[in-house]
Amino acid sequence: MDAVLARAWVAGIASAVRDRADELTRLDAAIGDGDHGVNLRRGFDAVVAALEAAETPAAGDVLVKTGTTLVSKVGGASGPLYGSAFRAMGKALRQESSVARALEAALEAVQKLGKAAPGDKTMVDALAPAVEAYSAASDDAARAARAAAAAAADGMRATIPLQARKGRASYLGARSVGHQDPGATSTALIFAALAAVTGPDSGR
């Protein structure tokens, strides 16, 4: 992944977040506090502005900048989690070029900070299978991104029957069952954006 692709990815996320902010907020209103879309829109709008102003020669720089901006602009649960994820990814890409390893670093960062396991009804339920699917297909970046996006979407839908154990939705106990997790939904959106910008001939 080069800086151009990284920027395209982040731009794709930002525009998808803007388009679907209301949906994310509505999902969050059902089992949380109704601000997930607002939070991410505020965050990614700030990221777009920050990247316009910043020198980011490499993909790692783009993603670190994205992460630090999210941490300092979003707040809530998703700010530190997505912020750490992008920062970890960027730092990993500064070390070695493997997107698969970068995604693994992101998952690790999210789990270290948030302590959620798969099945807790959080973004991890979309992130973990997406990272796994990407790694399994990582010899072809486009195919890997598509597989990750599909796995994230599956993981997102699989949150519906779960009872939340982490995040605000956990306060609802059994009433959290039957609702799709907003964070898993935004994670699926992030991987859909990755698949969209990773053409068959994009570099890994």
């Binding site: 059902a30 949380g32 009433r175």
Partner: peptide, 25 residues
Amino acid sequence: AGRPGFELPDDEIEVGVGIHGEPGR
């Protein structure tokens, strides 16, 4: 958001709520 976080019929209450407009237990 500009609209209430949930709809509550006129004869029902949410029990065990937090302070973020979320539904209760």
